[in-house]
Nucleic acid binder design. Structure first.
Lengths: 120, 120
DNA sequence: TCAGAGACTTACCTTTAGGTAATTATTGTT
DNA sequence: AACAATAATTACCTAAAGGTAAGTCTCTGA
């Protein structure tokens, strides 16, 4: 019983909590999906694709994803600098699941929005 | 090109953004997984299983999930009151994906934590 | 008559996420 | 000399998420 509780609550040891916290934010999934579609993108390209993300948040998001080993950063020592981002192998094993999630969201969005409306 | 940008950024029409925003919070996934495991639970049972959630947040989370048609609430007109929560059909179509996600998280948590450490 | 059970609700406060706008470094171009 | 380009960084601010602790409602049993 106590164990059950631990399994569901313990932030340090719950893998779901621990890992999914990282892309439950506003931008991570979007960046992952974009990179999955486009393969390799430079900082400013991502910035343009996701028109509404701020430079700061793009930096933060990419750093977190890089720290988790989901995104690879390749900097070319040129002036002006060029930096290319792409998905790692690890991220590529995750993408099918994210695609499923996206598909589910696509299928169910309309119904869910209906539900929300009928509650209000 | 402009279309691409829209597809990736538009909050109103992006299904992923729109739907997944809802369980990208601190507790929703946990509650869904718990209900998936236990089938039917009362308010205080959930509260005990997830030892660290506050009453307020449990209420908020359950209400959001109910509004989205993912959780069903059955109140029995007794004193003291009894309320039972369970997953809806809609939620049950979502659970396999969440299970996959959990599995992926389980498999990759250790490596991801290593990555994070090596970055710091 | 007062405590207790169950499922909340409310007021208040702190923490975190995220946004804005200005600034940096370096070199080639005008 | 000033400017443009690229990929950031920094200081500052607002809004949203989440936590704490106390209160509410209604009946039952001691």
């Amino acid at each position: 019983m106590e164990n059950k509780v631990k399994n569901y609550a313990d932030e340090e040891h719950c893998p779901v909590r621990n890992v999914l916290d990282r892309f439950g934010d506003k931008w991570s999934m979007l960046v992952l999906m974009l990179l999955s579609d486009m393969d390799v993108l430079r900082f400013n390209e991502i910035h343009k694709y996701i028109g509404t993300i701020s430079q700061k948040m793009l930096t933060v998001t990419l750093k977190k994803l890089e720290a988790d080993g989901l995104v690879e950063r390749k900097a070319y020592p040129e002036i002006p600098p060029r930096v290319e981002y792409s998905l790692t192998k690890r991220a590529k094993t995750l993408m099918p699941i994210i695609q499923d999630l996206a598909q589910w969201a696509n299928k169910n969005m309309a119904d869910i929005q209906d539900s929300r409306r009928s509650v209000v």
